[in-house]
Write a protein that binds this DNA or RNA. Structure first.
Length: 473
RNA sequence: GGUCCCUUCGUCUAUCGGUUAGGACACUAGAUUUUCAUUCUAGGAAGAGCGGUUCGACUCCGCUAGGGACUGCCA
């Protein structure tokens, strides 16, 4: 149902964030959908930085966007376009509109506009300037803005790819400002000119721009240009249904990264928010690209569900390369001020594959591996100290000797050895397992005993047991 | 206030006029067990409300209610 004029061109999509702070997760999802659609159709995915508001745009925010996209693995196919740099072109088009009568100079003061706004609101109509049908004042250097001369009647229909046909009465649409009194172009004008010049065929963006689609359609028409196809994505809300904000835990891409979510997990989870392919929940980028279609994008807003995100992330952590995880987790440990020695590094490498199935985030993985990084002799927690009575100490002593006989220090045979030992002692593992756990981990979270032993290595394991025994005696 | 959008289990969703309304996460119970977790098994859980259209409606239409967006010389 796309605009016929754009149907035959190769697809060009774009993400057009304004660099005014953090990169919202909704922007990330819009980027993902644009990226998926471009990849699916063999088209192009572009980035445009909407920095026409010089007051609010910052260099740092631009970098945040670039970093965010890069982290997500959604690199644009060309250098970013900076909207601000195109101001001359925008002004040219306003000139053209002025010549063709599609726009007019409005000399209303801000106060007068405020009054008109109030009147218009009270009367339930759109804002109209008195200068719409009036000659310019005689005093030539009076400040003015350029407004769009919108049609007074008829309707504008946006055939939205997600929402279906959306009808706006032209009478309800304001004569919006195209050029500010300082001569700088505004958003709605710049978007239209840039989308046209960049050859954008599909505009997939947040729901909050739906009403802008009506306004922008009018400008496209006034300029005599073909419109792109529009698709307005529903917003992402917090778990309570309100617009996603800081108090929901996170809203910026960078925050998700810091919380230990993997970019591929974010892509999978975000894709599933508002888009679906039957019952498929976990899928690769290749599959998502093959399956993605705008017609399968839902129209209702979705809530962020941390539990499910955690589940998806866990799935990708399980499948992730261990060396990559080790590097990522090492950074987290380092960030927490932990020094990682050579031996610790090796122990981490051994520990990660043994514990990662229990990690929902990289932060979890850090918690699950911290026990191998402890330095001997470990400080024993009270719970463990209480478990270390004479009988248990005797057992652990014998266990140490028994384990040292193991030819191979890997989990499966170690597990067998533990079972055999328990049997030879005539007790269940429960009789000394918890004590051994405490001795090996110093109270930190640790995996099952055999895995913990393997991760620590022979020397370290036996050393920790010996340390504990001499400490208690 | 006005314009526009949205509404299936707690959450994300499948369904595209005829189904015991399916799946995933979460939850509950049981099994496993050296903590937590993992794993396995079982289970509860939904069409906002009211009217139409139709032989038949979750699906189409209208109204109501509830959410949301926009209503800037912000984007």
């Amino acid at each position: 149902m796309s605009d016929p004029s754009s149907a035959d061109r190769p697809v060009v999509t774009r993400i057009a964030p304004s660099p005014t702070g953090q990169m919202h997760i909704g922007t990330a999802r819009a980027a993902l959908f644009n990226w998926l659609y471009a990849r699916h159709t063999g088209g192009t995915f572009l980035l445009r930085i909407e920095d026409t508001d010089r007051e609010r745009s910052t260099e740092g925010a631009v970098q945040t966007i670039l970093d965010g996209l890069s982290w997500l693995g959604l690199e644009p196919d060309a250098e970013p376009v900076y909207q601000h740099a195109r101001a001359e072109r925008h002004r040219e088009m306003v000139e053209k509109l002025l010549e063709t009568g599609g726009a007019y100079r409005c000399y209303m003061t801000v106060e007068e506009v405020a009054e008109e706004r109030e009147r218009a609101r009270a009367q339930g109509r759109a804002i109209r300037s008195i200068w719409r049908d009036r000659e310019a004042p005689s005093r030539t250097n009076a400040p003015f803005v350029v407004r769009f001369r919108g049609p007074l009647e008829g309707e504008t229909i946006v055939n939205d790819l997600v929402k279906g046909p959306v009808t706006f009465a032209n009478a309800n649409m304001d004569d919006l400002v195209l050029l500010r009194s300082d001569g700088s172009p505004t958003y709605n004008l710049a978007v239209v000119v840039d989308d046209h010049d960049m050859g954008i065929t599909h505009v997939l963006r947040g729901d909050d721009h739906l009403s802008n689609a009506g306004r922008q359609s009018l400008i496209f028409e006034a300029l005599g240009w073909a419109k792109p196809a529009f698709g307005h994505l529903p917003m992402i809300h917090g778990p309570d249904g309100a617009k996603l904000s800081k108090r929901h835990g996170a809203q910026a891409v960078g925050e998700f990264a810091e919380m230990g979510y993997l970019p591929e997990a974010m892509r999978n989870y975000l894709a599933r928010l508002g888009w679906g392919h039957g019952d498929d929940e976990l899928f690769s980028d290749v599959q998502a690209i093959a399956w993605f279609d705008i017609k399968d994008v839902g129209s209702a807003p979705a809530r962020l569900d941390w539990a499910k995100l955690g589940h998806v992330n866990n799935h990708y952590i399980r499948g992730a390369d261990d060396a990559r995880l080790a590097a990522l987790v090492g950074d987290i440990h380092a960030g927490r001020g932990l020094v990682i020695h050579e031996a610790g590094r090796a122990a981490m490498d051994r520990a990660i594959p043994l514990v990662k199935e229990g990690a929902k985030t990289l932060l979890d993985l850090a918690d699950l591996t911290v026990f191998v990084l402890k330095i001997r002799p470990l400080a024993l927690d009270e719970k463990t100290l209480k478990l270390l009575d004479e009988t248990t100490c005797g057992r652990l002593g014998r266990l140490g000797v028994r384990l040292d006989d193991e030819p191979e220090w890997i989990a499966a045979p170690l597990s067998k050895a533990l079972q055999d030992f328990a049997e030879s002692e005539g007790v269940g593992l429960g009789k000394f397992g918890p004590a051994l756990r405490g001795v090996l981990s110093g109270g930190a979270t640790a995996p099952d005993l055999a895995s913990a032993l393997e991760a620590l290595g022979r020397e370290e394991s036996l050393g920790r047991i010996a340390d504990a025994l001499s400490q208690v005696q």
